[in-house]
Simulated scan of single mutants.
Amino acid sequence: MAAPATADEALFRPVRAGNAFEETVERLLQAVRLGVVAPGERLPAERELAARLSVSRVTLREAIRALQQAGYVESRRGRYGGTFVNQTLPSGAGAAMRQPPADPVGDLGDALTLRHVLETGAAATAAARPLGPGERRHLRSRLAETAAAGLAEYRRKDSRLHLAIAEVTASASLTAAVADARMRVNELLDAIPLLEPNLVHSNEQHELIVASILDGDPAAARQAMAEHLDGTASLLRGFLS
């Protein structure tokens, strides 16, 4: 009988290709939070860690840089250098983040499940409708605004794009439900840092979602939205769970 997997093996297993950066951040944060790599200890060498996670070294470096900025790890140069877990870890969400809700773990699973059901359904429904010229312009306009947004306004523009997708379903009830779910998720998102590699990736995924809707492909729109939401979920679980 094979030996059971260790926590180290379980956390540093290959990530899925669709959201490599986000899942890499999640795995590294889990390793730190669970004490698999304790404060003061070094993460596995970059080459080894990239191979175990099945990600490029560029993706791994971006994930490590995100954790550095959030106060979880530091990089040291020299013969005994590498990436080390900080002796003092951020309390809750850390200095770069706002305070999370009182019960982030309890809120998180419920909020993410509701968002997934509503927004994947909205994307598929929007793609199944014969959209008029105004609705198409509306989606393209919101997409362009989000792609051009800076860090300070990104979350607001992102929310408007997601609401625009709900709006073109022509269901006022669904749009209201998506808006309510988005407000809950935004409270959680406000508790974690904005990570530039994630924003670049999100914009690429937004392009695919909108293109699938405009092409009238419900299955592709649902799949693209699901993959997009999975990336956000990975970051939230990593920082807040």
Rank of each mutant, 00 (worst) to 15 (best):
V58F: 10
A93Q: 12
G71I: 07
S91W: 00
V36G: 01
R76T: 04
E46H: 15
S54F: 07
R98W: 02
F12Q: 10
P101G: 09
A7V: 01
V15S: 05
E62Y: 05
G121V: 13
T125H: 13
V58E: 12
Y80K: 04
Q30M: 11
G132N: 11
V105L: 14
V73C: 01
V15R: 05
P104D: 02
S54V: 11
G92L: 03
T113W: 08
R76M: 08
E41M: 13
E41T: 14
A127P: 04
S56Q: 10
G106V: 02
E119N: 09
E22D: 13
G132L: 07
N19E: 13
G109F: 04
S75W: 14
D107T: 08
A126Q: 01
E22V: 00
L53E: 12
T59R: 05
A127F: 06
A111S: 14
L11Y: 06
A70S: 14
N86C: 07
A96I: 08
L29V: 04
D103W: 01
L67C: 08
R42P: 04
L131P: 05
A38M: 09
R33T: 02
R16M: 11
Q68S: 05
E74P: 10
A124G: 15
E48P: 06
P44Q: 09
V55W: 05
R98C: 01
R98M: 13
R57D: 05
R27F: 01
G94P: 01
M97K: 03
L34A: 07
A31T: 09
A102Y: 00
R52G: 12
P14H: 04
Q68M: 13
G71H: 03
E119Y: 10
Q87N: 11
R33W: 06
G92H: 03
N86G: 10
A20Y: 07
T125W: 13
L29N: 03
R42H: 10
Q30K: 13
S56H: 10
A38Q: 15
E46R: 15
V73W: 00
D107L: 12
T83S: 12
L114Q: 00
A7M: 07
A127W: 06
E48A: 15
E74L: 14
A66V: 04
G121I: 13
L112N: 03
R57V: 11
A126N: 06
R13C: 12
A20N: 06
A66N: 03
L112M: 12
A10H: 09
A122W: 13
H116D: 14
Q69F: 02
A7Y: 08
P14K: 05
R115I: 05
D107I: 03
V105D: 00
E119W: 06
I64H: 07
L89K: 03
F12L: 15
V73F: 02
M97H: 10
Q69T: 01
L112Y: 03
H116L: 14
A124T: 09
L60P: 07
A10G: 08
Q87I: 11
L131M: 12
L60A: 08
A31W: 01
R16H: 13
R13N: 13
P39H: 08
R115F: 04
G132M: 01
A63M: 09
T113R: 11
T120L: 09
G132Y: 11
R57H: 06
V55Q: 00
V15G: 02
A102K: 02
A63T: 07
L118H: 14
P100V: 01
Q68D: 08
H116K: 13
V32M: 09
A70M: 03
Q87C: 10
F12W: 15
A96E: 10
R61G: 10
P44E: 11
R77N: 12
N86M: 06
G106M: 05
